[in-house]
Write a protein that binds this DNA or RNA. Structure first.
Lengths: 347, 347
DNA sequence: TCGCATGATGTTTACGCAAACATGACCTGT
DNA sequence: ACAGGTCATGTTTGCGTAAACATCATGCGA
């Protein structure tokens, strides 16, 4: 073997990133003083501070978070378990949480689980707690296979979406309100009833929307038509739409998200039904594209930023304050009426 | 103040997570043996290993990554700087990178920069290197304000998207090929020329697509119409579409992404132009929804998973192998022909 | 039978940092 | 003038881990 493969202690030291000790040596102070400067403590004379700061600059010093965390027990990092960014809602939620966390001085360590089983969630959870996080946000896009998820204690957890029954604080859009707004809107236009294309059966959000649609119809004394299920994708909406298009008397359809609404719309148009003259279609989410579909889509807008803000502040309260609020916060969505809904044909 | 607010050393010790020492004490071995078991080393007798493992289980031991990282200098974490998950392409890229990283045994620490200026990128970079990452993936969705981005050395960097001229390895979809495929497809249908709604001027991807569109037209001897710009949003596509709809003789439009294509389509339909009978429209990306628009959209599909896989493997090579490949890898996209493109009206 | 390799395990140390405690210098009020 | 305080700074220590080195038994060939 040649000499290049061997490494001297001096060589290693030269290559490694500068530490507080290096800065201290250059500035002619103790490393503790460097620490005080690095952490913006008072009790350092201005002239000394400047000397330390310029030594830091010259050496390109950056504090070593691992070492700092080892001492303080804090990482200033949030773990985030999600089901993937394919679905629009998830991506927006993750995006908003990342930004909110950043404003609060935290970075986000993300894990996408492939299947939302208790096992997978536990694995992700383990990996994250090992991976130095102060708290974990769990986006429970799907209902887990366990009725009562039991996460190891000791790490603050906040749920986004998910079931109210968990023993962790939860923040979510008020899905029930959104579904009620849409359903009422269609009934108020004069439709006798409203059909619903729900999201997957194992989604809490989908379930809440469907339940609220059902309750709203009953409250209004309208007939409750058979429920159809999709999987959030435009393709599944299209399949549901083909079924509905064959059925006479369908004048209003509420799809549980915009992508499925789009699929339903496509199927209707393909079957020769005009939107909204023959059939009204509404979605949920308010995708950026929703306003530019043909026709522009009536939908419900979720405020992901507010949801994320709440999640992060609940998180930070638990981490820094030590309080464990068991609250469940719902953020109100907003009805956006566009051109895909209108009065029924012969009303 | 009452006693509850005070904390004894014993109390603190009781609450803190178990360490190797605790496991070692319970199993009646040295902490080094625990370390060997935790790291799956050989040279531990099976019976001892079992004793240690069960002690770990009983105590709920999880290794402390901060301490481990402090010793090894490795974090098994990748930093990811992106411009936000609002744009479909970004979200898909981030999602794919997260999954690829996970397969390689890394977690992803994500930072979303608000504006892609050199300053913002540097700040994010600083935060991440401090934040204990082994390497950084930079999704350069926008052209930076500096011609030559200079990142602090010492941390492996891989670019996604971005400029070829940077001194870091880069992986991207072959944007030029995609744009050529689309443009040629429209010319081959018999259109005299193809109009282009480009993405924002400060996007590399947008620039490459536009350049390739331009070159393809010239090569074919077609006239090169005036270039329009959008910002990737459906809204901007709509505005461009209104301009194009007023112009007679526009029979084929290539929008630089699907969302803008959708906006263009909306504007055309609103202006009474039929798609594809009067005007053909094509996009780029292949959103899940693209197949369910009315009419279904002809577009180019990018293989984000392959791109992500390459990025992560380049990253891991650098981190673990120490090699610094300066390669630039392009992943070929695929033309997806649907119903939004057809032969020109009177050809 | 002895010496030496091998394998299992223990002991010491260093990683970089901040908390806790220690040391002076200087000030302030009486 | 001196006790008692305040402020800037230094010294010591411990966080949890893995590398390096040390020890001790066991086995095997000469």
């Amino acid at each position: 073997m040649d000499g290049a493969a061997q490494e001297t202690a001096a060589g290693r030291r030269a290559r490694r990133r500068p530490s507080m000790a290096d800065v201290a040596a250059m500035a002619g102070v103790s490393s503790q003083t460097v620490s005080r400067v690095a952490n913006n403590r008072t009790n350092v004379e201005e002239e000394t501070r400047q000397r330390v700061l310029s030594a830091m600059r010259v050496l390109g010093y950056r504090p070593n978070t691992a070492a700092r965390a080892l001492v303080t027990g804090q990482f200033r990092t949030l773990g985030l378990i999600s089901f993937g960014l394919g679905a629009f809602g998830n991506a927006r939620t993750v995006d908003a949480i990342t930004r909110a966390a950043q404003r609060a001085g935290y970075t986000v360590n993300m894990i996408a689980v492939e299947s939302q089983t208790e096992r997978a969630v536990h694995e992700a959870f383990d990996q994250l707690t090992m991976q130095a996080v102060d708290g974990i946000v769990l986006i429970e896009a799907q209902i887990l296979d366990t009725p009562a998820l039991r996460l190891p204690p000791g790490v603050p957890v906040v749920m986004a979406d998910g079931d109210v029954s968990h023993r962790h604080p939860m923040v979510d859009t008020d899905q029930a309100l959104g579904a009620r707004l849409i359903t009422r809107h269609l009934l108020d236009l004069g439709h006798e009833t409203v059909w619903h294309v729900a999201g997957p059966e194992d989604s809490y959000a989908a379930r809440r929307r469907a339940e609220s649609w059902h309750a709203t119809l009953k409250d209004a004394g309208a007939a409750v038509p058979q429920l159809l299920f999709g999987d959030w994708s435009a393709a599944s909406g299209y399949h549901a739409g083909r079924v509905l298009a064959r059925r006479p008397g369908v004048t209003a359809v509420f799809a549980a998200n915009d992508q499925m609404a789009l699929g339903v719309m496509r199927a209707m148009i393909q079957a020769g039904r005009r939107v909204p003259e023959d059939v009204s279609i509404a979605g949920f989410d308010d995708l950026d594209e929703a306003a530019y579909l043909s026709p522009p889509l009536t939908t419900v807008r979720q405020d992901f930023d507010v949801v994320a803000e709440r999640i992060v502040s609940l998180m930070v309260d638990q981490i820094e304050g030590g309080t464990a609020p068991s609250a469940t916060a719902f953020v109100a969505p907003e009805l956006i009426v566009r051109e895909s809904t209108a009065a029924p044909p012969s009303a």
